[in-house]
Nucleic acid binder design. Structure first.
Lengths: 340, 340
DNA sequence: AAATTTATCTACATCGTTTTCGCTATTAGA
DNA sequence: TCTAATAGCGAAAACGATGTAGATAAATTT
């Protein structure tokens, strides 16, 4: 059994109130008793019971994490697991645990918001989800502190990777390498996809490079098979692109496979690039050229913002935090074949 | 604000006690009022506050998860993230949320056990950790329901993949493919490593295949660089092995890289195999031959055991649950060069 | 008809905290 | 020397639920 404040108070020969106040930094406690209490607390390993405290203070020191991708990859998501990990680390640094929000607890199914209320989380981080679901609106319209990753709701805090700049860097790079026939296998419609796709078109337009309609295909994020299919399709085109940009690093595995199955060498016969910069793809042969998103900063920033939103609601924090990203030159982009 | 039982009771024109009992299946409540209460609860979206309930009942419906690997990969662990995901799913099915146990909450650092008490978790799942740490002993010697994955404490419940059988299948397979010079790059000392290593030696002894001392090297789990180094070392041996078994799938990426850097083709010049069967490595070219651990069952079984341990402490559950695994024939094992 | 049982419901203590308010000394002010 | 201020502590009421023990009315038994 955990030790309670009552036992601690007995041991110190003080009232419960005094002990509580001593531990919580109230000023009407003498330094000597405070020290005595702190010491005794350490000795018997006292920690205030989180539930009792939450009940009284309405603060659970728990952050809800809402992360549901189309593939249900959950914790196994090749990219987001990194964001989550750093979110969690930063949250812990501030004294918060995290709780995954879902809507199927036991038999009873609850909405996301109900789950949040049930566990009384102090705030929620929403990431990588279908932001149009009504359940999400319910949550976003609630009074809960919320931070979103990779999506912006008006008057809600958001963390975003600089997708426009990322794609621009990437496109400029492949253009500089000599590519003029550049295809893009992008993810399903979402604000992230929109920024990247927009940046893709804009940058190429800047170079006056035309983009045939059939050079742009949709696939699922984090889903190699769908990229495999799209890549095969592109490779079979009469006017085959010399370079294919893929929605994300992990899914790019599908492109590696497609190339191998089509008998094409990367990058000699065809160039490819990913997006995300997950460590694993930097171990591939050839090393994937990609844009690294700073998962460490994205997650940590999200946690930091959420915490400060909770702990000092007045402070005006920038609505949207944009995290820079940077090109990683791997080995999957070469000059297009026949160049010289 | 979440809606409380008081408001619900007002709405129903009943006392708080009655409402509580109606919702908790007490028999001294008439069917009609029970229905009225349940209906009203649904209408106004009432859920009992988890903290208040936990405070009173001493049950938080929260499971602690303790997972700390040497590399601090945390949620990003290529293999364990799958186990965690299925653990979480199964836990949720039973109405439990999960909480990650750590020892650095905010400024104050607490032991794992203190964190468990603080959050009043109903039970703990321990996985992939240095099981010798004193903090772990403190936890294991506590009164908390505990289930371990891949390690057995006496009189504690444990879930284990059948490592002996897995390695045996693998060794038999490579032996059948004609290999006689088989090396093993294994993980650091642990019960899992011991079982696998033991099975490795035993199976080869059964075939009367000698294992030179320098064929067996230690590396870190989930750490491609250390496997890279070990593999390079093996490849540089005068009496080079024809086949190298690697500690785990993800780390095997280091072997792919090592082979490429040494100018060797897999599997033509050298055969390799992994262990775990994570999906990602089945997308590699060549597809990794490995032993698939059933992460779905391992995680789910761990959750199931833990929950039944919590909810019906009397039931005698098998102390140790062994989950079968199976060989996956990929493309990284071929007949040794010069065979014919 | 009185006594007893049964069926429903309610009052109240409780879980472990925090926090407001009041109490008692002691110190300072006049 | 007497009053006012202050420092340090404690009593008690919450927070939102559960669960025991009791209350009331109706039904049954004697």
């Amino acid at each position: 059994m955990a030790v309670t404040i009552r036992e601690l108070s007995k041991r110190c020969g003080l009232s419960i109130s005094t002990v509580s106040k001593a531990l919580n930094g109230y000023t009407d406690i003498s330094e000597t008793t405070r020290e005595a209490v702190t010491l005794a607390a350490k000795e018997i390993g006292y920690y205030p019971n989180a539930h009792a405290r939450a009940l009284k203070t309405k603060r659970s020191y728990n952050l809800g994490v809402l992360f549901v991708d189309d593939n249900q990859s959950g914790l196994t998501h090749a990219f987001f697991s990194f964001v989550l990990e750093s979110f969690k680390k930063e949250a812990e640094r501030h004294g918060y645990d995290i709780t995954f929000i879902s809507h199927n607890m036991g038999e009873s199914s609850m909405t996301y918001l109900e789950h949040c209320h049930y566990r009384e989380v102090d705030g929620v981080c929403i990431a990588c989800i279908n932001f149009l679901e009504p359940e999400i609106s319910q949550l976003v319209n609630s009074e809960l502190p919320i931070v979103t990753i990779d999506h912006i709701f008006n008057n809600r805090m958001g963390i975003q990777s600089n997708n426009v700049d990322g794609i621009q860097q990437l496109v400029e790079y492949v253009y500089t390498q000599g590519h003029r026939k550049i295809a893009y296998v992008h993810g399903p419609k979402s604000s992230v996809t929109d920024s990247r796709l927009g940046s893709f078109y804009r940058t190429l337009a800047g170079y006056q490079v035309p983009v045939p309609e059939n050079y742009v295909l949709e696939c699922e994020y984090n889903d190699p098979p769908s990229v495999y299919r799209a890549t095969r399709q592109l490779m079979a085109l009469p006017n085959r692109p010399t370079c294919i940009l893929i929605s994300d690093d992990y899914a790019a595995l599908g492109a590696y496979e497609a190339a191998a199955d089509a008998g094409l060498q990367i990058p000699d016969d065809i160039s490819i690039a990913g997006y995300d910069g997950i460590p694993m793809m930097q171990l591939m042969k050839p090393r994937l050229t990609t844009v690294r998103q700073d998962t460490g900063r994205i997650g940590a920033e999200a946690a930091r913002c959420l915490v400060s939103l909770i702990e000092s609601p007045k402070t005006t924090i920038p609505e949207i935090t944009v995290i820079p990203c940077r090109l990683i030159e791997g080995e999957t982009i070469a000059e297009p074949p026949g160049t010289k």
